[in-house]
């Protein structure tokens, strides 16, 4: 079972990202069992929120929150900190939406390179570059992050991810932009050189 936690803020689509990821997992045929849920509650726009995603080749019976994740995905750097780092398993990966490079993040937060792979991608900039924003002109970053995930050791490729995005939003111009963002994110994501 692979456990993934999304960190974001209400309205960024962290929960939707989890849903798309679980759909992509099913499409990949490598993970027939999925379970994705938000941290639940009186969600408000802007409030820090968590979304949990479990994917597995065996039935999933765990219903509690994920305590330690294989992949920690942070859509908004302002919610990132030790609260995130302490919830990553040894050998896990951190995927952070930031303009900074992995090395800086590692130094800033003192992350042990032997334990956690740090990946950064400037998803916000990609969204602005592609004009991929919502009505309030906020950048959409929840779909592009799936492109980054497709680069990971997860057995989900970019094709599954884009198909899942289409399943979620239907065909259309905006969907194409989302896919473009995902592809661009996959290309520009920075992985620290220390391999685990």
């Amino acid at each position: 079972m692979i456990e993934i936690i999304f960190w974001g803020r209400g309205g960024m689509g962290a929960v939707t990202a989890g849903k798309i990821l679980s759909d992509a997992a099913i499409l990949s045929e490598n993970y027939p069992h999925v379970s994705t849920f938000p941290s639940f509650g009186t969600e408000r726009r802007g409030a820090p929120i968590l979304a949990f995603c479990r994917i597995s080749d065996e039935p999933i019976w765990v219903r509690s929150h994920i305590q330690k994740a294989d992949y920690a995905i942070v859509l908004d750097e302002t919610v990132f900190g030790d609260n995130v780092i302490t919830r990553i398993k040894d050998g896990g990966a951190l995927i952070l939406n930031t303009f900074k490079c992995p090395e800086d993040i590692r130094k800033e937060y003192g992350i042990d390179p032997a334990k956690i792979t740090v990946v950064t991608a400037d998803l916000t900039q990609i969204a602005f570059d592609l004009n991929l924003t919502n009505q309030e002109n906020q950048p959409i970053v929840n779909t592009s992050v799936l492109g980054v995930l497709a680069q990971s050791s997860l057995k989900i490729n970019i094709g599954d991810a884009t198909q899942a995005i289409i399943n979620m939003f239907g065909e259309g111009q905006k969907t194409d932009l989302n896919i473009k963002a995902a592809e661009q994110a996959a290309k520009t994501a920075q992985v620290d050189e220390v391999k685990v």
Partner: peptide, 19 residues
Amino acid sequence: EMVPEKEAPSCEGNEGGEF
């Protein structure tokens, strides 16, 4: 005017790598 909160990037990394 709404201006982004972020600062400018400081260094380059290994783009498009797999992990």
